[in-house]
Design a protein around this nucleic acid. Structure first.
Lengths: 187, 187
DNA sequence: AGTATATATAAAGGCCTATTTAAAGGGGTC
DNA sequence: GACCCCTTTAAATAGGCCTTTATATATACT
């Protein structure tokens, strides 16, 4: 029944990390002038890497948030690179970061159109308000993710903690759409 | 030189307290229907006493805030009464509350008028914007309190942690006003 | 008679700030 | 038409501000 194989592309991985130690953000600003730090606006310092192209927020507490990586592995590599650069800049950091992937965002193309209006009436835990946002928002229970469905047959899956959760979510939803006859394939 | 003795009246004492134990606020609501608890609006439950006439905020964490007492002693008595009432209502509370007075507000009448405009130019750490608020706001460093001065010769002292801080603040300010010739006494 | 203005103070929960990313539809400027 | 911006979703991080309670004081405005 599935006419096509979904194309899945991980677009963003968010990971939290901690070096378990207080960090002087002003010192980082001095040694890394290209960082952004506006404490009156936001308490975190923004440390950008060209490769992997990411933005890591560094907090006074030694906790960090890395965003923008294209895979779990690259997110981990990015945090380790940031810590390595800080150390080369003579910022004393005793321990390596303990890293946890917190969220994975993926773009998916099912290869066929979706009957959104019908899906809104059929899928449970769904919200569809086209004048507010063109996508249908569907909350999947297992894995616990949120999937945005578009009439074009494209999806956005977010909330996954592992890349395998993305694949499982897409498979579950695709099966459900086929089953309920909500997919429209050309000829 | 002080033509009159200031009349000092403690109007409000705020104390924080803790019974060092989690409390089920919904259970209190059931057993004390006259309490106010609207968690979507504010996380604390409001427990009012007729004597001493006070309002005590009770939090999930077992921490409390008692307001409205007319003396340090009454604030302590109010918190102990609240804990006693909770226990009589079969709310299990193992330890007595550890109480700390956090703020004392007092109303004072110096018995003579104050030349506010001149005081605004003379007193350090003062703010006077009559179109915004009719009182002059003066920050005293020792004791660390804030005194509102009104042209009528009345004052409001707030921020004190002990009743003696109120008396010291008033004495300091009164002396300063006399010294700088900012007081105006009838005939 | 109420509202607002201003002062201090504790409590805890909500929301804002900022970071990233895709999707598609609306708006605006050039 | 090509750019921006906005809309929505998730997630961590951490400051700031708001909510509520009480209280005197004194102005202006509904």
């Amino acid at each position: 029944m599935p006419q096509t194989k979904p194309m899945v592309s991980v677009e963003n991985v968010v990971a939290s990390a901690s070096v378990e130690q207080k960090i002087d953000l002003n010192e980082i600003t001095t040694k890394f002038p290209d960082t952004e730090y506006h404490p009156e606006q936001f308490p975190g310092l923004v440390f950008r890497l060209k490769t992997p192209r990411t933005a890591t927020l560094i907090f006074r507490t030694g906790k960090m948030v890395c965003t923008g990586a294209k895979s779990e592995e690259m997110a981990i590599k990015a945090v380790n690179t940031v810590v390595q650069k800080l150390r080369k800049g003579k910022i004393k950091i005793k321990n390596d970061a303990v890293i946890t992937v917190q969220n994975i965002v993926a773009a998916i193309n099912l290869g066929g159109k979706i009957h959104l209006e019908k899906a809104a009436r059929t899928l449970p835990r769904s919200m569809y308000e086209p004048e507010q946002f063109p996508g249908l928002i569907h909350r999947m229970l297992d894995p616990k993710t949120v999937i945005l469905l578009f009439a074009s047959g494209k999806l956005v899956c977010t909330g996954a903690k592992k890349e395998s959760d993305v694949y499982r979510s897409v498979h579950n939803l695709h099966s459900l759409l086929e089953e309920k006859n909500l997919m429209i394939y050309d000829q």
